[in-house]
Design a binder for these strands. Sequence first.
DNA 1: TGGGGGATGGGCT
DNA 2: GCCCATCCCCCAA
Length: 215
Amino acid sequence: MFTFAVTLSMIKKMKLKLPLSYYLNQDVIFLAKDLLGKVLFTEIDGDVTAGIIVETEAYFGVLDKASHAYGGRRTSRTETLYHPGGVSYVYLCYGIHHLFNIVSSVEDEPHAVLVRAVEPLIGSDIMELRRNMPASRPAISSGPGSAAKALGIDRSFNKKDLTEHEIWIEDHGIRYAADSIVAGPRIGVAYAEEDALLPWRFYVKGNKYVSKPRS
DNA sequence: TGGGGGATGGGCT
DNA sequence: GCCCATCCCCCAA
């Protein structure tokens, strides 16, 4: 009986990176759900870290009152959202936290998926240094600000090509049963009026890295 | 040019 | 549960 470990170098040799065509999909609600289980990577000064995406939110472009692009708003910040799918959108929230989004769909259709939590997969030791806490604590990568920080994502990652090698996403074949994916209202978007109630937050039921909405 | 507010998180009570 | 850090964005003027 043989056993073997999947090493980082083996993973790097396989063609697991999601292709540009994946991000051009015009159904951002589908993508937000489909991205659960995909693996988000960064490589910074030779340090590779990666986490399994376990919580996302879809932002439905110009029609979505919760989106930065609502009503077709086009500013220097939101310009990234109008780019064709397959780039990152990173912005500073509350002056402190960097929030990472995946821009999707075609040019001038500013859809995006916010990554709200990841489960550490590769480089937990590096994440511990970035977060200044032990990897045993779910808080290390729970919530959009923490997930981005654990992966070393800051504003310099805005508008990066996700098919390149600074930040990218891979499919490692992780799949969740339909009944273990939960859909519910998005977090922190009360200002979006009726759109605040849309069930466009998706997460893996029971996963300890999924963020806890404040009650 | 000014100021109100935000797709949050951590620490303390 | 409460508090507030901290900075950039954005729109009104």
